[in-house]
């Protein structure tokens, strides 16, 4: 009986993952277009980068298989692992501690229904990426969860887990831009040609 529950849970989770990261290559793109402007585009991305590299975003986009914690991005205590679906493994699944909403109080587990890391086959690493690398990665459907540019904007603007970064619970610093400001910069970056900062950019 327990096995059946576990299997059906895994199926549901797998379904959710598929939904979250499905590719829509056939869908017509409708991202805003404007005059290409490499300088303006890169400048906008620099702001986007600052947000993505802030603790609230980067901690769940680590370079290793363990999530990070805190404003100092230390490796999550308890030897937590990503797992295939990004939701942890065995008795340390994310949702065993992280609820659908933040648990009230300093240092209590933050929460969201979708709490987790990107899955093992689509790790979407932010930690350690240069501006150049991260820009290219975000634009590459093979590395960004199969997203078109429009879907990328939509993800930043509307995804519920992304939105958690601006409601992180007691004691956690916010990303350096508001969410609307971030989305505006993402739109600008893409509208002006989605240029990646040069590999030498610091």
């Amino acid at each position: 009986m327990k096995k059946v529950i576990a299997i059906s849970l895994i199926a549901v989770i797998a379904g959710l993952v598929t939904l979250s990261f499905r590719t829509e290559s056939t869908k017509k793109t409708n991202y805003p277009s404007s005059v290409k402007d490499s300088v303006g585009s890169v400048k906008a991305f620099m702001s986007v980068y600052k947000v993505l590299m802030s603790a609230r975003c980067m901690n769940c986009h680590p370079s290793g298989d363990a999530p990070l914690q805190g404003d100092d991005n230390h490796i999550h205590a308890m030897n937590i692992k990503r797992g295939t679906d990004g939701k942890g493994i065995y008795s340390v699944r994310c949702s065993n501690c992280h609820q659908a909403e933040n648990t009230a109080g300093l240092h209590m587990p933050p929460g969201n229904l979708k709490w987790g890391l990107p899955p093992a086959n689509m790790r979407m690493v932010f930690q350690g990426r240069t501006r150049h690398q991260l820009a290219l990665q975000l634009l590459d459907p093979k590395q960004n969860g199969g997203r078109t540019k429009a879907q990328l904007i939509d993800h930043m603007a509307n995804d519920d887990l992304v939105g958690w970064a601006w409601h992180p619970g007691d004691g956690r610093t916010l990303p350096p831009l508001t969410r609307p400001a971030l989305v505006a910069q993402v739109r600008l970056w893409i509208a002006k040609g989605a240029y990646a900062p040069s590999a030498k950019a610091k």
Binding site: K2, A77, S91, R93, S95, N96, C97, T103, M108
Partner: peptide, 26 residues
């Protein structure tokens, strides 16, 4: 009381949840 130690672990639909931070509502 903060999901740090695991002493309160129970199975909720088979998953090892920390009951100290799991509201009865869930």
């Amino acid at each position: 009381g903060a999901a740090q130690c695991g002493a309160c672990t129970v199975h909720l639909n088979g998953e090892a949840v920390r009951s100290c931070v799991t509201k009865i509502n869930r």
